[in-house]
Every structure is written in C-alpha cells, then in structure tokens.
Design a protein around this nucleic acid. Sequence first.
DNA 1: GTCTATACAATGATAGAC
DNA 2: GTCTATCATTGTATAGAC
Lengths: 197, 197
Amino acid sequence: MTDNAKTPAAGTRERILDAFETLLSECGERAATLEAVAAAAGVSKGGLLYHFGTKDALIEGVLGRLETMVALDIAQIRSSEAGPVAHLIRTSAPTGNNLDRALVAVSRLAQASNSRARQALRSANDAWYQAVLETVGDPVLTRTIMLISDGLCYGSAFFPTEDPPRKGAQDAARPQSPDVEGIIALLETLTAIPYRP
Amino acid sequence: MTDNAKTPAAGTRERILDAFETLLSECGERAATLEAVAAAAGVSKGGLLYHFGTKDALIEGVLGRLETMVALDIAQIRSSEAGPVAHLIRTSAPTGNNLDRALVAVSRLAQASNSRARQALRSANDAWYQAVLETVGDPVLTRTIMLISDGLCYGSAFFPTEDPPRKGAQDAARPQSPDVEGIIALLETLTAIPYRP
DNA sequence: GTCTATACAATGATAGAC
DNA sequence: GTCTATCATTGTATAGAC
C-alpha cells in the first residue's frame, strides 16, 4: 500500500491525474480545464501547475498511465483462463475500472485531434488485436471481435449514465445494458464453427 | 438541383452547417468555434451569427439535419434488398457520406456532455436496433450487430485519416480498413445457424 | 508544495455601418 | 445579408508571496 490512487494520503500528482481523467470522461475535453481539474483534485490552479507545468504535461501524464495499464492488461489477457476473447469483451463493458476510465479519457483527447493520444489508442488496439488473433486465427473474425469491443467501450461512453436513472423502468422496450455474457457465448459459438471466407 | 449541399450557389445556411459538421468531425468540438466555422464556410463571424444567432442554434441545426437523415436511412434500410444487416454494416463504415459525417459530428457534441445530442444519438440507435431486431429476431445477436456498427462508425472516427497516408505500405502487419464485406458474410452465417442462448 | 495575483490570447456575443 | 468593431468572460500560463 505504497500509493493507492484513491487514498487521501496518495500523491497529489496521482490525484490530479485521476481528476483529469474523470473530467475528460464524464464532461468532455472542453470541460477539462486547468481550473476544473484543480478544483476536482482539491488544489488551486497554481498548485496544479507546480506538478504539471503545462496542459500538455497533464496529457502526457494520462498517456503514460494508459500505456502502463494496457501493458498490464495485455499480460493478463494472455494468461486469462477464460481466454482472450471473453476477457477482452468483459473488460470492454463499462465496468468502471481504471483501464476503462483511462481509455475513455484518452479517446476524448484523440477526438480533439491530439495526435499523441491517437497514437496511444492505436498502439493499444494493435496489441489487443494481436493477442486475439493468436487465439482466434482468422483476421476477419478477430476484427469483428475488436469492433464489438470498441462498440462496448466507446459506445457506452457516449451515455455515461442514463440521464434520469429511473429504476424499475421497463427493461424490455429498449436495448440497454448489453448482455455481455450472451455476446461472449455467441462469439464462442462463432470461433467453434468452421468459418469459410 | 435546387440546393445541393456543395454547390457554391447553395444556401449559406447549409454551407455553414456543413462547415460546422466537418470541423466537429475532423478537429473536435473544441476546435469548432464560431470563428473557425465562419472561416470554413467563407463568411465572417457576424455573417454566421445572422443565420444562427447563437451557438446552440448551430447545434440545433445539425441535430435537425441528423434527424432527417436518420429517418431517411431507416426507411431505406427496411426496403434494402441486401437486408438490414448488410445495409447497416456497409453504411457504418467510413464511406464519407452525409449521414456518417452528421453522426460523427453529433457524437462529438454528445461527448461534450450535450444532452440534446445524446438524446438524438440514442433515438437513432433505438430506431436502427428495432429495424435489425425485426429481421434478426434474437436480441443478443441484434445487440452484437449494433455494437459492430458502432465500432465501425465511431472507431474509425478516431483515426480520421492515417496521419501519414503512406501508400504501398505493408498491409498485412496492421489491421486497418476493416473488411466490411467479410464481416457481413460472417454475420450472414451467424443469422443462419441455430443460435441457442 | 501550495497559494494569490496578474498577463495575454481566444471565445461567444452585441451594436451598428454598409 | 454580410461586414467590422467592440465587450465580457474564460483558458492557459507566469511571477512571486507564504
């Protein structure tokens, strides 16, 4: 327990990066201003700028964290008992874990035309693609699985939380909360049948 | 040929909306400022503000156009010879058509926490979901198809154009330009086999 | 390490000339 | 209809006190 990311005693640096990622994910790139980040992290603008002298430095910070997390996830995915496909699909859904948040945050930057962010996303995607391809074998099927993963991860990011989170509403009418396990079962079926291009 | 969207003689209003959509899609929400839109549309800031008195009015403009196009697409999709699935997947790829651009533009606004934009995206998705479900029958498979469509549409929007569009590079190493027809063939196979949840 | 104060550019918007 | 000021506000960044 050297430096947990959420502990109050955690380093201010990490707290600032957390705040930046959260703002990016939940409110968009434009709303993630230095002032807003500082407020969310519980420091002043000046205090923030001591740790990250420039906004680009802040961005580099989240990019670096993402890279670390992706490398970790790739290692996990390869040794996953359930197999890469199930692992990938499960972790693509909005589970609210750290990788998810970082990924969505960086995707916001990518869509703001930040080429470093785009590069980072592409690298991550390439790594996952490779891991899945090694198991699945077929490129088209692999691509399809990656697209589902993308749709799960980014599509859900469009609708962070149902604006009115009315509970007990009729669930049958609209297709929310994609049935992740159902999709996995479907994909397992697919990888089993003889697919002929 | 009353008012084609690209004709120089086209209405200034449409030209402005085109410029706004393009900037939104290609440069992100933050870069789509009134000044930038005005410049791209070939008018001054004041000229722009004559047609759209406020930035919200501009946003309403693209939202309205999207709604129209989606309604049209839904009609097309239902009467498509190739079937809804093939039609949806084909038009989800970055074809550069008007619907695509509008959809990506609105998704940028949605990610900037614009609730009207989110609402519009959700409505569009619901409509497509219904159309596919009617043909496919199974909810999980339908959801899966929608996710692929999302991944195709938004995922490609992250990487507008390969930064260096080096032609003749080795295509085997990296998974670019998703094989749309291959994916469709795969999905046709899926809808044919007896899927058991 | 963290804060306040300040400089400077850019943004959304208004007023009024042509 | 379209343009050129002009203004208030906000965003990034710097300087220097504590």
